[in-house]
Design a protein around this nucleic acid. Structure first.
Lengths: 141, 141
DNA sequence: CCTTGACTTAGAGCATGCTCGAACCCCTAG
DNA sequence: CTAGGGGTTCGAGCATGCTCTAAGTCAAGG
């Protein structure tokens, strides 16, 4: 498979694929007779895994470390495992953080909904004071 | 409160506080007699909220939009609510993504653990073939 | 044979979000 | 009154992760 097809299949651009090779995330590709990169289909599995790591916030330097270990052979398995364990903990912590934020957002949205209702009632019964003090809290945050 | 103290209390650096003011995330601060920024304590609440938005992945341009709406007064409340709803959905989606990734990581880590055990047994019973084919899969990803 | 289009390289440029340096000002305590 | 430790502005610089340009090579179809 040439770089253009790999780009289509992996979702990366050809530019990005070359970039990833340059920085050591992808193995140096084999070349065909004309000197073009020629990929084996299983590179897609590795790219998908890299994508997972990326979307879960692993910086490229850590992905490189993992890739380097992988390239060094089986005896680096414990180190790779350790890397993944550390990353898993980061992801866990991140999820916890996001869940806490979700509560805050929900509360805040509820506040807006409640204020909306108050304004509604207010307008219904007292249209002469549409910017009344009872809704002034909305401007605070 | 002067900028140095706000920096300590908010966790932002004074540099960052000025930067946030410049780009419109923080309101233009009042000045004291000597022309220095003088803050009211409740700016901390706003900064904490910004921090939430930031750690949940909202780009600065969206935070600015929210800040701008806030500055325009109560009638922008529906727009702000809408912004937060959209953000909440992003956060939800992000959480789902991370949870899926967590499963992948757990599976992968388990694979390493299992391979380790196999190597262990193998070494115990057949120390002449420590790099045997049964663990070669480890180099694949 | 010649055009077309995908490929090659090195290196510049961009978007985001800070982070820092330089040069200067001003208040307070010793 | 003078040194120190804030503060001020403007603008450059940095880290990350791409993204694109320029100039050129190469293979295949009309």
């Amino acid at each position: 498979m040439k770089i253009g097809e790999l780009a289509k299949r992996s979702g990366l651009s050809a530019h990005t694929i070359r970039y990833y090779e340059r920085i050591g995330l992808l193995p140096v590709a084999d070349r065909d007779a004309g000197g073009r990169r020629d990929y084996d289909a299983d590179i897609l599995v590795w790219i998908a895994f890299l994508h997972r790591l990326k979307t879960t916030g692993m910086p490229i330097r850590d992905m490189r470390r993992y890739a380097d270990l992988r390239a060094k052979g089986d005896h680096t398995a414990p180190a790779r495992q350790q890397l993944l364990r550390a990353h898993r903990e980061n992801v866990r912590a991140h999820i916890a953080d996001l869940q806490a934020a979700l509560l805050v957002l929900d509360t805040k949205i509820d506040t807006y909904v409640a204020a909306e209702k108050r304004t509604q009632n207010h307008d219904d019964r007292d249209a002469r004071n549409p910017a009344g003090a009872r809704t002034a809290r909305l401007g605070r945050d």
